[in-house]
Design a protein around this nucleic acid. Sequence first.
DNA 1: GCAAAAGTGTTACAATTACACCCATGC
DNA 2: GCATGGGTGTAATTGTAACACTTTTGC
Lengths: 232, 232
Amino acid sequence: MWSSPERPAYPHQALAVVLQVRAGRLHVMLWRRGNEPFTGAWALPGGPLLADETLGASVARQLASKVEVQQLSHLEQLETRSDPGRDPRGRTVATAYLGLVPAHLDPVLPEDTAWHPTDALPETAFDHGSIVGSALGRLRAKLSYTNVGFALAPPTFTVAELRDIYVAALGYEVTATNLHRVLLRRGVLEATGEMTPPGRAGGRPAALHRFVTRTLEVTDPFAVLRPPSTPR
Amino acid sequence: MWSSPERPAYPHQALAVVLQVRAGRLHVMLWRRGNEPFTGAWALPGGPLLADETLGASVARQLASKVEVQQLSHLEQLETRSDPGRDPRGRTVATAYLGLVPAHLDPVLPEDTAWHPTDALPETAFDHGSIVGSALGRLRAKLSYTNVGFALAPPTFTVAELRDIYVAALGYEVTATNLHRVLLRRGVLEATGEMTPPGRAGGRPAALHRFVTRTLEVTDPFAVLRPPSTPR
DNA sequence: GCAAAAGTGTTACAATTACACCCATGC
DNA sequence: GCATGGGTGTAATTGTAACACTTTTGC
């Protein structure tokens, strides 16, 4: 280490805001603290940045003790918190990541870890409550202009199932009709050709769909001020 | 400091990507390194995070030696770089900020510091070249869906002047006609009521405009998947 | 037949681009 | 008058929301 009074060093934490839609509601993964400070409050999973890893690798490593990492369908950096008083034990800097788990998985969680609805968070430790808020904002924005939906959805799904996922994540109503068309037009979604059997009460069988690509892409790049159309 | 083998600590840097439109081109402020490593290469202004400051305060402090801080019209956190090899002298973590200076100012810069066009960067030190790339992406996106333009523009300006600023920052043509209307409709821009005298070659006098608010606001919140219209 | 659920057709609306045209000034 | 630059009118285009309607199944 090469710190000095002019170059102080700080323990650095990697934190993860892991989100999943469960039973039609958006949930975040938290663990319950057993020690001081914030005993009994709920915290984001995370831990120290080790000597030879990047922040991204660190989050993945920390999460490995909570969920199998391959269940994470997406991971991106969110923001870095540096308030000197954010941890009463001493100064730390923390970089938060946003992680997403598709709705069809139900990872086995450690004893002290549980999913909490994002619209009814329990008492949270440190600045973790406001970090969850940032993550929600990021997810909601990206659902509108990228294909992140793939990271919340199972490999294949009906349009109605996908709609429920979007509604849970966005927090407002979306109609299956329009969602279907918007995503088809953009080339984000495609039909698999298969059908699901109708439910017990009858009804038309639903077509199965999948996301065309399962890596993050910006599908609606310019809100406005688009570049001029290339003259044909 | 409370580090340990299990909780290693690292010097943390705050870096600033300060952008300004100068003579119709977008420029970034860089300083020329005199010492190893990367002697002679150009680097982003920045420096160590001190014991009692937040990252935001740190960037502001570092920049104070380059420009007067009140000349910065906007400052926001960009991203954190943590590659263990990013500094050959030893591990550091760096958090980059995006700073903007309005076009009418011409801050006095230190001897070793200069503006460089973003589309023709000189040899850059560390990972600073790619950080500049991130900053450009962020600025361009936000010009489309927020009112950040205020941070690049002087207090008052003609629509033609504003257009030149947008063109420089976005890197593609924008017509004054449409820019004017888009920003007016959104309530981002307003006429001051004053006029500028026409140039030496004549021409209709231009109306002066200003941004209605000079703090960041999201003016075009949803690219798509808007919430349902409230039934009247 | 009837209810249920999925999906399509169609209309209405809003925002934006493109472009022709009109306006105000200096020489 | 006429060149120059600023600004407005207007049509064409695009993307989206809303909603009625048709399709396909179970009972």
